[in-house]
Design a binder for these strands. Structure first.
Lengths: 200, 200
DNA sequence: GCTTTTTTATAACAGTTGATATTAAAAGGG
DNA sequence: CCCTTTTAATATCAACTGTTATAAAAAAGC
């Protein structure tokens, strides 16, 4: 019983994602959020908790609805395809929406006041998890002969992630999709080759 | 005539750089600044103007005192040495001070409220200038036979900058200098070679 | 149709933000 | 030694921050 909610939670969450994506965690105020979602302040609090909890839910929404290509990329047959998929899909996502370029995981909370440290840690952990899963995927590729036995998979994963992060920074600076794809190609230009039939 | 200033402007500017470096433009409050510099609020205003002007002067100070290796790198004889110098010196700078990792030019103002857009543009322009000078340096290398005639110098410069930016993000996440150097080596692992005697 | 329950909307909360008015203090010139 | 000029320090400004009481409105059960 009781009154029914007048807004769709997932829809509001998507609007919140858009604002956080553009302005970051601390750069987004509740005035921004009510404006973007069309929902009054107390309703946001009752539905999502405080700002930190709202951001964490927005982050989960972002991962499911926009970063779904990341786990999908790991399923591809070769390490080169994995890396290429990540790089090119990121180039596309980072430039897809003119009003919110780049990546929420990168500039959602890079620097800021001490109050936001918990959010910064959450983003760092999320990126660390992504890098770890990429490293594990490269380890598998090494065992499969897709990558040389001499490959340092941790370094290779860190390198790919570094390029992804750098592309996000450049996207926020207004780089075109073509330019980011050129960066991606350069990163892939000398991908190490293994001794398996898969690698060629 | 008149009373003498009780603080050294350059010293205070360096303290301001440290705070901005760690917390970014909007994440830094005047309370932080007075605490770090030991100078009261009105004195900061009379000496540097408002917050935006103070940040711009801090940015110039940062460039002169910490980013001096950037123009120096461009003077090196080969494009590979230029890139290597930039990458490894950045890995060092980004991890030199445990209390302020990463790069002020990257996370000084990536995302934030609309009030900070002028500062964001200033940082974007600064990074764009650096990338342009790097591209010009690669163009010269191409003419000298240090890089293949097929080289897309704009893409190559954008790639190096992307790795630098990505390393800054990773440094802020706590990456060690060794890890960043591994990323740098990976980026350099397949540097294009020209046909001049300089390139080998 | 009243009661209960949940959701809205208005208004206000204390704390902090960047920026100053004001007053006291110090330095140098005549 | 006074007078002018510049700086320093205390206090304060309005505007905004995230967060909540409080009251009005709507939906469902008995």
């Amino acid at each position: 019983m009781g009154r029914n909610r007048e807004f769709d939670v997932d829809q509001v969450l998507d609007a919140a994602v858009c604002v956080f994506w553009r302005k970051g965690y601390e750069g987004t105020s509740y005035t921004d959020l009510t404006q973007a979602t069309g929902v009054e302040r107390p309703a946001l609090y009752s539905a999502f908790g405080n700002k930190e909890k709202l951001f964490r839910q927005a982050l989960a929404h972002y991962y499911e609805h926009y970063l779904d290509y990341f786990p999908a990329a790991l399923e591809l047959p070769t390490s080169r395809e994995v890396a290429a998929h990540l790089l090119f899909r990121s180039a596309e996502l980072h430039t897809r929406y003119p009003d919110r370029k780049g990546c929420l995981y990168v500039h959602g909370a890079l620097a800021g006041s001490d109050d936001a440290e918990s959010i910064r840690c959450a983003l760092i952990n999320a990126r660390t998890d992504g890098e770890a899963s990429l490293r594990d995927r490269f380890e598998r590729a090494k065992q499969e002969g897709d990558l040389p036995v001499t490959t340092n998979c941790a370094s290779l994963a860190a390198f790919v992630m570094a390029v992804l992060h750098g592309m996000a920074v450049q996207a926020k600076a207004g780089f075109s999709r073509d330019m980011l794809e050129a960066v991606a190609e350069q990163a892939l230009s000398t991908w190490p080759t293994g001794n398996s039939t898969l690698s060629r």
